[in-house]
C-alpha cells in the first residue's frame, strides 16, 4: 500500500472484514500485500519464503482482526503480524537471511577488489557493473538486520520514511537513525574493502 493517507478506507474495510465480510477482506489484502510482501522479502531474502509469510500473515489477520480495537491501526497490525511470522520462520530455519545472489557473491567481491587493485581510478565504472552490484549486496548482507531491512526498503523499494515507519512499527526518527547508520557502515565497509585490496596489490 503506497498511499498512507488511505487510512480511513483501510479502517472501514477492516471494520467490515472483522464482521466477516470476505469482499472487504479481499480489498484489504489487495491494498496492503505489496507492503507486507516487500517487508517479508527484505527480512528473509527469498521470494518463495516471503510469499509463504504473506499467506500466513493474512490467515492470522482474518482470524484476529476482530480483536484489533483501533481499526485505524490496521496497516501497523498487519505489518506486525508479518514481522512476527517472518521472525518465527527465520528462527525455525535456524539461519539468518539468505539472499538469492549468495552463490555469486564471492565472485563479485573478487571482481571489485581485483579491479580496484589494477586501476584505483576506475571506482565509478566498477561500482556500476553487475558484479559490483553483487559485491555491494554482500556488504549490505553483513549489516545488522534492523539496519539492512530499513536500508533495502528505502534504497531498493523506494519507500518513504513514513511508509517504513508504518511497516516496521517504529517512529520516523528511528527510521532516520537506522538509515543513517546503515549508510555510514555501507560506505565504510566498501572503503575498507577497496583500501585492503590496494594494499595487497602494492
Amino acid at each position: 500500500m503506497r498511499d498512507l493517507n488511505d487510512v480511513k478506507e483501510l479502517e472501514s474495510l477492516a471494520i467490515r472484514a472483522a464482521d466477516g465480510d470476505q469482499g472487504a477482506f479481499r480489498e484489504l489484502v489487495e491494498k496492503t500485500h505489496a507492503t507486507t510482501y516487500r517487508l517479508a522479502l527484505r527480512m528473509l531474502g527469498r521470494p518463495a519464503e516471503a510469499e509463504d509469510v504473506v499467506q500466513e500473515t493474512y490467515i492470522r489477520t482474518w482470524q484476529s482482526l476482530g480483536k484489533l480495537r483501533d481499526k485505524r491501526a490496521t496497516l501497523a497490525f498487519v505489518c506486525r503480524i508479518t514481522r512476527n511470522v517472518a521472525t518465527d520462520k527465520l528462527r525455525k530455519l535456524g539461519r539468518r537471511r539468505i539472499d538469492s545472489l549468495d552463490a555469486q557473491i564471492g565472485d563479485g567481491v573478487g571482481a571489485l577488489v581485483d579491479s580496484i587493485a589494477h586501476d584505483g581510478s576506475a571506482q565509478d565504472e566498477l561500482l556500476e557493473s553487475a558484479q559490483v552490484g553483487v559485491a555491494v549486496r554482500e556488504v549490505v548482507d553483513q549489516l545488522k538486520e534492523k539496519h539492512r531491512v530499513v536500508l533495502l526498503l528505502r534504497e531498493v523499494d523506494g519507500m518513504s520514511y513514513e511508509e517504513i515507519s508504518a511497516a516496521l512499527g517504529v517512529p520516523v526518527g528511528t527510521v532516520e537513525s537506522r538509515i543513517h547508520r546503515a549508510r555510514k557502515e555501507l560506505a565504510q565497509k566498501l572503503e575498507r574493502l577497496a583500501r585492503a585490496q590496494k594494499r595487497e596489490a602494492a
Binding site: H33, A34, L41, Q123, D124, L127, G133, L152, V156, R183
Partner: peptide, 20 residues
C-alpha cells in the same frame, strides 16, 4: 565516502522495487 555511498545506492536502486 560520499561517492561510494552514492554509487552503492545506485546499485541498490537499479534492482528496482521487488515485484509482487
Amino acid at each position: 565516502s560520499f561517492g561510494l555511498l552514492e554509487r552503492a545506492r545506485r546499485v541498490l536502486a537499479s534492482e528496482g522495487p521487488a515485484e509482487v
